Amino acid sequence: MTGVDRVEFAYLRRLVAEPEMLFGLVRSAFGYILLDRQGCEHFLNAFPDASFGPADRLSGIKRGMHDARARAESHLRRHCLDRCLPLRLGRMLRKHVPSGTCYLNTGHSNLTDRVLSAVKSVQDARVAVFVHDTIPLDYPQYQRPGNDDQFRMFLQRAGRSADLLICNSDQTEADVLRHLAPLSPQTAVAHLGVDMPDAGSPPEGPWTGQPFFVCLGTIEPRKNHELLLDIWPEIEDAHLLICGSRGWNNDAVFARLDQKPSRVHELNGLTDGQIVGLMQQSVAALFPSLAEGYGLPPAEAAALGVPVICNDLPIYREILGNIPVYASADDLYLWTAKIKVLKQEQTLAKIRLRKGAAVPTWEAHFKTVLRLV
């Protein structure tokens, strides 16, 4: 899952465990699906293994729908409280949802005028929107064409209509208020929690039994894999494992990876458990990102006790303090030197007892959020 996916999953998991009434609103290919608590539990239990069952006949009407989506939407329809065409969304919500309900949007998607109008038609309803970052506006060069305009509309809509904007950091809150000025919406900061899955058996390869470093994240321009490819010929007797799927607009890096550079390995499709297993065996985790909204992977590595080298970004300083080794992405010499030092220390120590660093928890996050919504 992506970072945003992990946040949405954490919210679903926590809210299902809360005693209050719970509903889930899903936009499907054929309108909207409304889940009650039981329906949300069914989805939560089915999601990790994608055990959604077969696609129904309705999904077969929509040409080109991915099989996984067809099965997921069919599963949701089988366990729904109600469903409707888009024009009847307000009527469906008023029929089932009690007054005083708070609508939580946690994923930067589906916050449309239609949804907001329908939610607001429920008596005394409130709206809380989670804003993960403002990267599309601050770094449009790293976005798909048009993403900045789409995000700008989302943020303006949230700023005008939401009763609360939840931000994952002080940095994000400052960025949100800067972009929304002169609007001054109510905001709250709640750092994201870090909870690690159990370690699985890591994949084996030429790196097995040898010193190796891990870089975790989608292979896209702002993750700056190019820096690591530039310096790796100088890192002798160590492997680089790039764990993540290929993104977009990064043809130069893809071409270099296709050439199979020495001691550089591209791994995708790994499970969370496999990644944890690799992290635990690695010398260090490397994050030369040029921009980040939060940076869950470095926090996860720190929680495992894995040394972290990362670009000197304000968000990393806020979340991780002095835990990582910081090196400016402009300084290739410093990155090379820091990696060599860690490799040498690992080689000399042979076996190092690692103790995880104290990082933010989901319990603290929800203690802040749930008292406000």
Rank of each mutant, 00 (worst) to 15 (best):
K62P: 03
L34C: 04
D56N: 11
A46R: 04
D36Y: 05
C40D: 12
R63F: 10
L44R: 14
R37I: 03
E41V: 15
C40G: 10
A46L: 07
G60S: 03
D67I: 11
S51P: 03
R57A: 14
H66T: 11
C40H: 05
N45Q: 12
C40W: 04
F47T: 09
S59R: 05
A55C: 09
R63W: 09
Q38R: 13
D36H: 04
D56Y: 00
L58C: 07
L44V: 09
D56T: 01
I33S: 00
L34G: 05
E41N: 04
F43L: 15
H42Y: 11
D49Q: 12
D49I: 01
L44T: 07
L58P: 02
D49P: 00
L34M: 06
M65V: 15
H42D: 14
G39H: 01
N45R: 13
G53L: 03
L35E: 02
F52P: 00
M65H: 05
H42M: 12
R37G: 02
G39F: 05
A50M: 09
A50F: 12
D67Q: 12
L34Y: 07
L58N: 06
L44I: 08
F47D: 11
D36F: 03
G64Q: 10
R57W: 14
I33Y: 01
A50S: 12
D36S: 04
N45W: 07
L58T: 09
H66L: 13
E41L: 15
R37P: 02
A46I: 05
F47P: 03
S59Y: 01
D67F: 07
D56E: 03
R63Y: 11
G60D: 09
M65N: 08
A50E: 12
G39A: 07
F52E: 02
I33V: 15
R57E: 15
D67T: 13
R37Y: 05
D49Y: 04
D67E: 15
P54T: 00
Q38H: 12
P54C: 04
G53K: 04
N45H: 08
G39T: 01
I33R: 01
H66P: 14
F52I: 02
F43E: 15
H66F: 07
P48R: 11
K62E: 10
L58H: 08
Q38A: 15
G53P: 02
F43P: 01
D67C: 06
